[in-house]
Design a protein around this nucleic acid. Structure first.
Lengths: 338, 338
DNA sequence: TAATTAGACTAAAACGTTTTAGTGAAACTT
DNA sequence: AAGTTTCACTAAAACGTTTTAGTCTAATTA
């Protein structure tokens, strides 16, 4: 494919009667260039179909105009990949609009021995979006040093060149609880994620805040800490109904746990939403297909991707916004009375 | 990130006491290089952590060692992206193992005016995997010219530098029909995809073949042509049961259509699998979550990605395998009697 | 013994950019 | 009138590779 390469900057220069450097400067928005010259250059470039080679640019320039997206290890049995895919596409589309090339780094954990910053250099990346990184992960610690631009999903670090993108979990939880309160529930159980996830703490805050605002006394035995998986949702229901047999509403911190909970509730002979109402968190594609269709707090995964790209590119270019918090949305379906 | 760039080929050359070209030749597997020298070079490279710059290489070399994956336009409402994601990851992982960098081309249709071959040059790609390409698509016609290495999913072109990857649809359909026959069904309906999709024809062949093999007379009014969507699955059931009220088994050419069919059957008061057994095709993540859990012909999406990468890299390197057909697998769940 | 070939290596050009360090002319200052 | 500044531009080096066209020595052949 490289044989008779494309139109190069030289062709544009020749045709415009200027030097190669002038064309380069025009394309890179330098100021010391005559307006007419600049326009002529752009017109000619357009005409002959010139596109700067990202490879050549990356080799010479400070910035390669390439960013990476590193994704959690692949698991054959994980049913949430449509969510990941939407993040990915949002990230890609925005990045490509801004002239960045996106390089996918699969199986990051394979490289655990080497330093993350080394990998970024090897790949000529200006920055990286880390999604699904575990807090225990070695790369996580390296990222924290803030040596290079880096965006994290659901992990609220905002120091140095590190950015953070996530959904407002306090608000998300509140939306769910408010809905239950409106429907007259007093005994609202909460199946949370594990305690060392930031979002779990946030969702817990939202749960507390909403209950307090509505003068419902908080009962910690109505809270169960799972690990976001379907199995832990089932476990949560067993445990909670062991403690209280009159729970009438459940808020789960992930759709997967909500789905597990529903399965377990059905097994116990409970009708949903008549006996128990339930609201999840995420809005997986799955959630609209289970029976009953799951009401949930929607995170806009596509927008998460777009925001991550926005943030990362800003960080690379030295700007100082370093977090984007997205609005959650309550989606009412069949697991609640509406 | 580019400031104090990495270890380069020069560092290796200096330390090994040879010229840069020798190191390059060693790394590219040239033969006219002494075995000891080669080994010394590799050892030193390993020691000081040398990794060839893919950018520099791509600029100079015939091949850039970069391949693209172009994906169907993003649709917010499409529920099958976990399937796409698995293809993607399979493709990525294999390509990266073989030393290829993968470039994601989102929204290919945005570029419709320009020639595909032009795009590949602009991006310095050695080849591309096109997934979800419509037959009506302009790029499809361009791909067919075979000017550059290119792999298609589910579209059986095998000429020139074009490769084809897919699941054996004849066999897949047979698996489903054989199961129904074994369970004693005679009136087996078929909700197929649209007639101009290759896989629809294959699945139809499989359907015919299996019926004939089992001495069941073929009744064309038991066949409905949908368009792979959920809605057309519903429509299919309405239409088919209008024609025959005693259908006891349905094979659908996509899980989405099977899901639509199930919804419609439930609405009609049919019990699944007691009144009607149903088998889909694909095995989406969704399918294990609907009620009843869908029995289906599984396509291994991860393997599809791996196979596409394998094929593409072979085509680029001038080898002549140009198709990989994967084995389907019958997955029995709750929509059939097992 | 002279000529050829094989083996192991190298110098330098090339790829398409960006960037550094200017240049020359025109327009201002003093 | 001499010096300074601004404007618009450029030549050439640099980025890290691969590749072309050798070179030099030693071994083989005629």
């Amino acid at each position: 494919m490289n044989k008779n390469r494309n139109v190069t900057i030289k062709d544009v220069a020749k045709k415009a009667g200027v030097s190669v450097s002038t064309v380069s400067r025009a394309f890179n928005g330098y100021s010391d260039i005559n307006k007419e010259t600049r326009e002529r250059i752009f017109k000619i470039a357009e005409e002959i179909g010139y596109v700067p080679s990202i490879l050549a640019r990356g080799m010479r320039a400070e910035k390669a105009n390439r960013i990476g997206i590193a994704i959690e290890d692949y698991d054959e049995n994980e049913p949430t990949y449509s969510f990941t895919y939407r993040i990915l596409v949002g990230f890609m589309e925005y990045a490509s609009e801004r002239g960045y090339e996106v390089v996918f780094l699969p199986n990051l954990s394979k490289y655990q021995e080497s330093r993350l910053v080394q990998i970024l250099k090897d790949y000529h990346l200006d920055g990286v979006f880390l999604v699904g990184l575990k807090l225990s992960d070695e790369f996580y610690k390296q990222a924290l040093r803030g040596e290079f631009p880096c965006v994290l999903f659901d992990i609220p670090i905002k120091r140095g060149k590190i950015g953070f993108v996530g959904t407002d979990s306090i608000k998300g939880a509140s939306l769910a609880i408010e809905h239950f309160v409106k429907n007259g529930h007093k005994k609202i159980a909460f199946i949370n994620g594990h305690e060392n996830a930031y979002v779990s703490l946030q969702r817990l805050d939202g749960y507390y805040l909403s209950l307090m605002k509505n003068d419902i006394t908080i009962d910690k035995t109505l809270i169960y800490f799972g690990d976001f998986t379907e199995e832990s949702g089932k476990e949560g229901v067993r445990e909670l109904f062991n403690r209280h047999r009159d729970i009438s509403a459940i808020f789960a911190a992930s759709d997967l746990m909500a789905i597990g909970a529903i399965k377990e509730l059905k097994k116990m002979g409970k009708r949903i939403p008549d006996d128990v109402e339930i609201i999840g968190f995420d809005d997986l594609d799955l959630s609209a297909y289970i029976t009953p269709k799951l009401s949930t707090i929607r995170q806009n995964s596509y927008k998460i991707g777009v925001s991550a790209a926005t943030l990362l590119i800003n960080l690379i270019n030295g700007q100082n916004i370093n977090q984007i918090i997205l609005e959650p949305e309550l989606v009412l379906r069949q697991s609640t009375k509406n």
